[in-house]
């Protein structure tokens, strides 16, 4: 029942976002027809095009038609790349997701232990380094770092490829995430290939979130460590390791989970720069281009799909949060 209500909530959010975006792109100044047709178009051509795209009808009619299309999985035609936006997004989304998920995983896998170390060895070298890191990491010049890594690891040392997702043939299409597909189809050559390409972009995209996760874990660990139950566990002789990793981390992690829910959409935004520098064929780059080109359907479509993922990720993190913290679970 609760689950149903939440799914319903999610649908309402998506509907609202679609309406908002739909109206917003049309109300903001700018003429997509000019962009699509080029400057040599005649008046009749422009008119014809508007009729063809349904732009001559009132807004509410356009919106309802759009929604009806959505139900058939039809996002409308992009102006930049005259195909269905749904098809383009389907093609490009896995690239972005793979990048963002890998970066998130890296940020968590490195950031959490780093935050714990910093908190448990307060004012020690790890703590000092991680504090400096959280300060600089959040305001890290992604763009510059990406180019430097590329130059050093890619061009000078030839350790990793400079750009792209894969060099050889991609693995059989199952999910669109190359690593997963390669694993599922047992294609380890493609897996290594894709992994090598992922290294630098993943690192660059993970830097900011990693710093945030580290400082979040650190500060919530410190909060938790000051709680009486820690002193009590110590007094009764429970070992440090259990206290830190079983008791304190679990409580400290719930706040970090919320942060991860926030980080996810931010990272999709941040993916834009990384996708640009590493010629990564993802959806963030497509979305940014769509905005510049005033491509209505593409803007709305990309926003909707990203929104869907953000909503789902938030749903998952919230459920996890509840699972981790019995106080919230019991209140329901």
């Amino acid at each position: 029942m609760r689950f149903l209500r939440r799914v319903l909530n999610m649908l309402v959010v998506l509907l609202f976002v679609s309406l908002l975006m739909f109206v917003l792109v049309r109300v903001l100044p700018g003429d997509p027809v000019g962009a699509a047709l080029g400057d040599g178009a005649t008046k009749e051509q422009v008119e014809k095009f508007r009729v063809q795209m349904g732009m001559d009808k009132p807004l509410q009619v356009q919106y309802l038609a759009y929604l009806r299309g959505l139900l058939d999985g039809n996002f409308g035609v992009s102006l930049m790349e005259p195909r269905d936006v749904g098809t383009i997004v389907r093609e490009r989304l896995p690239a972005t997701l793979e990048l963002v998920l890998c970066s998130l995983a890296l940020a968590i896998v490195v950031g959490v232990p780093l935050g714990i170390l910093a908190a448990t060895h307060r004012n020690g070298p790890v703590d000092q380094a991680s504090r400096l890191w959280s300060l600089t990491g959040v305001s890290f010049p992604n763009f510059w770092a990406a180019l430097m890594l590329q130059l050093v690891l890619g061009a000078a040392l030839s350790l990793v490829p400079i750009t792209g997702r894969i060099t050889g043939p991609p693995p059989e299409h199952i999910t669109g995430l190359y690593l997963v597909d390669a694993l599922l189809s047992g294609n380890f050559k493609a897996m290594g290939d894709a992994a090598r390409h992922l290294i630098t972009p993943t690192i660059v995209l993970a830097v900011g979130p990693l710093a945030q996760i580290t400082s979040m874990i650190r500060s919530s660990m410190l909060d938790e460590l000051a709680k009486p139950y820690v002193g009590f566990s110590q007094a009764v002789g429970m070992p440090r390791f259990l206290i830190n990793y079983k008791y304190v981390l679990r409580n400290a992690f719930s706040s970090t989970l919320t942060l991860i829910g926030f980080l996810f959409p931010l990272m999709i935004g941040g993916a834009f720069v990384v996708e640009k520098v590493f010629a990564w064929p993802g959806v963030a780059r497509f979305g940014a281009d769509a905005i510049l080109a005033n491509d209505y359907n593409a803007i709305v479509g990309v926003t909707l799909v990203i929104c869907l993922f953000v909503v789902v990720v938030n749903f998952v993190t919230e459920e996890l949060y509840v699972a981790l913290d019995p106080r919230i679970r019991l209140e329901r």
């Binding site: 139950y229 002193g231 009590f232 007094a235 008791y247 409580n251 019995p326 106080r327």
Partner: peptide, 12 residues
Amino acid sequence: PQDPSAVLNPSF
């Protein structure tokens, strides 16, 4: 201890 509510771990 003094405060029984605080010394028990709320998550377990």
